Simulated scan of single mutants.
Amino acid sequence: MKKPFDLTGSVGKISIYNMRGFDEPIVRRKGGPTKKMVKNRASFETTRRNNSEFGGRAHIASLVMQILRPMKYVGDYNLAGPLTSLFIPIQVLDTVSEHGERNIELTKNPGLLTGFNLNRRTPFTNIITNPISYTLSKEKLSATVTIPELIPGANFFPQEQFTWYKFISILGVVEDVFYGARGYKTKAGYPLTPGYRVIEQTGWFNITPKSQAVTLTCSFNASPAEVIGSTEINNYSCLLAIGIAYGSMERGEVEMVKYVGGGKVLAME
């Protein structure tokens, strides 16, 4: 819905609502088949299979989003849809299971998530143009991220209205998702917990003509079996993310400004 119109809610057979990442309200038409029709009619068999597989992709996407949750306020749009779509080519790699029951084994091609951006307006690579050095070990569950020395206007392009910034690095474990009697689940069989990620961040820096290089180290200090809770599970990938947040001075302290900054999945293994 284009301006100057500015309303949300239901009007007749349409719904109007706001969505983060869009400047104007979104308009959609109500209607379509009922849940009972989709669940029971033979004509919706393909729809049921598609819905089942979508549920599997949504499940593993939720695991990734929970790992990235500490960077929630760095992003500027809803990640759920685009992230869920990224798992389609991974799901079709399962050529053994039937349609509707295909597994999502990220371990078969974890690189598909590398470079996934948390921002549309200000991608991380537009803020810091130099490559970010890193190490990542799936076996040791450890990683390092090194941000080079930054020179505004040369390799560092922060938003002009902010004078404070900090870096956040996350190392997380993402398990593959398999179809079973109770739908899609991980082999461990329980929901992801905060113990599946390690967060490191710098203090707040003031933007200066030149800043020194910074290294962040993330390590679980535990074996994969201890982190996942089983010695028999090898179906996991490691996700390494990097983000930059901006801050403003409020009442003598720097506070993070929400929904500005930049972040991305730096590497997967």
Rank of each mutant, 00 (worst) to 15 (best):
P70W: 14
A143L: 04
S142P: 04
L106W: 12
T107Y: 12
T47N: 09
N40R: 09
Y77C: 07
R48H: 11
G21A: 05
L136C: 02
R121S: 00
P33Y: 09
E98P: 01
V92L: 14
G75R: 14
I67K: 08
M65E: 15
G55T: 06
L112A: 07
L86W: 08
L79K: 13
P110T: 08
F44L: 01
N117S: 06
F22G: 00
H99A: 12
Y77V: 15
R29I: 14
E98T: 07
I88Q: 12
R28I: 09
V145N: 01
T122S: 00
L106K: 08
T125K: 06
L112E: 04
I88K: 13
L141C: 11
P89C: 10
K36D: 07
G32C: 01
H59F: 15
K36N: 05
L136Y: 09
N50S: 12
G81V: 11
T107N: 07
M71K: 10
N50I: 08
A61Q: 10
R48I: 10
I147N: 04
A143F: 03
G111H: 08
F87A: 09
L141S: 04
R120Q: 04
A143S: 13
N50C: 07
A58W: 03
Y77L: 09
E105C: 11
I16A: 04
G81Y: 13
T144V: 08
S97D: 10
N130Y: 05
I67N: 14
L86E: 15
